[in-house]
């Protein structure tokens, strides 16, 4: 077990597994949309890109989907090193 980290602290191309989503920090609708876009505990994420002009928002791969989200929201998602070996 290693300590949880935040998506924005991942290096580009690094794959990690979502360990917790702080749903209390979100309004219910946004929390729902996160799930509709595929975020969930146990799902792999990969940090793909940081936007120009300051590295916010982030482009993150979740499952087979690429999702753009701001750092402020990504901070509510904790990750830990991927269970499986990275490709």
């Amino acid at each position: 077990m290693s300590s949880p980290r935040l998506i924005e602290r991942l290096s580009r191309g690094e794959i990690a597994t979502i360990s917790a989503i702080d749903r209390a920090g979100l309004d219910p609708e946004t929390a729902r949309r996160l799930h509709e876009l595929g975020f969930d505990e146990g799902v792999d994420v990969e940090l793909l890109h940081r936007a120009p002009f300051g590295g916010d928002p982030l482009a993150v791969r979740v499952g087979n989907m690429v999702v753009a989200l701001r750092c402020s929201m990504a901070r509510l998602i904790e990750v830990e090193p991927a269970a499986r070996a990275a490709e």
Binding site: T30, P57, A68, L69, R70
Partner: peptide, 9 residues
Amino acid sequence: PTFLMEMPK
């Protein structure tokens, strides 16, 4: 506001 959207292939 927040920014959360799918980036299609």
